[in-house]
Amino acid sequence: MPTKSIKIVVEGGNAKPGPPLGPTLSQLGLNVGEVVKKINEATSQFKGMTVPITIEIDTSTKKYEIKVGVPTTTSLLLKTVGAEAPSGDPEHKKIGNLKMEQIIDVAIKKKPQLTAKTLKAAVKSILGTARSIGITVEGKDPKMVVKEVEQGKYDDLLTKYEQKWNEVEG
């Protein structure tokens, strides 16, 4: 059974039948409207975020499967902080502040895509992204918070979330 994979990034719950998706799907003989509707249903919980998806198509039977990835770290952080876009000047212009629990939550959601082996390492990675887009954490520059994580300040909190981290495939 010949299969074809289409990888594309769409806005959660708002995929459009236009290019590049529509023409590609119609070339493969699929009902573009139906596929787009299913993509929008599958990505609806990520409204307003960019979401990677893969469509696996059996070219002989025209059966397909939609696999939804996890939005980018930037998208997850922006949604969590309630901002539309990253700061153009993260050093001087902040777009919001998050609690450490929110950073841990983003780290857990991103686990399947991260190379981090531990929750602590994942949190430090997420803090780096937060800093680069103008988000403070616990009212501080995320670079300071990384130092505090390394010093063990958040060990009790991280231990509380270890179980959740370990339950996620990755």
Rank of each mutant, 00 (worst) to 15 (best):
Q163K: 11
G33H: 10
G96K: 00
A130R: 00
E65S: 02
V106A: 06
K63D: 12
L25G: 02
F46C: 00
A122F: 04
P2T: 12
E101Q: 13
I133K: 00
A121E: 15
V36L: 08
S60W: 04
N14F: 09
H92P: 01
T118L: 09
S125F: 08
L28P: 09
G170Q: 01
I95N: 07
V81G: 06
K120G: 03
D89N: 15
K37D: 10
L78S: 02
L30F: 12
Y161R: 12
E11Y: 13
V123Q: 09
H92I: 03
I104G: 01
G48H: 04
W165I: 02
Y64H: 05
M1K: 00
I66F: 07
V51D: 10
E162M: 03
K16C: 13
K62V: 06
I126P: 04
Y64K: 00
M144I: 11
G170N: 04
K67F: 07
G96F: 09
T118A: 08
L77D: 10
K110H: 12
G128R: 13
L76R: 10
A83D: 07
E162N: 04
V146M: 13
D141F: 06
D89K: 09
T159R: 14
K62P: 08
G139V: 08
A83P: 09
V9E: 14
K160N: 04
L76I: 04
G152C: 12
I95S: 03
D141Y: 08
T43G: 03
M100T: 01
T72R: 13
I108C: 09
E138C: 06
I103K: 02
Q102E: 15
N40G: 05
Q102A: 13
G22V: 01
V149D: 03
A83S: 13
D156E: 15
K120V: 07
E65I: 00
V9F: 10
M144D: 14
T61D: 07
T54D: 09
L76T: 00
T50P: 01
G69F: 08
K124M: 15
K47L: 09
I133T: 00
L77S: 06
N166I: 00
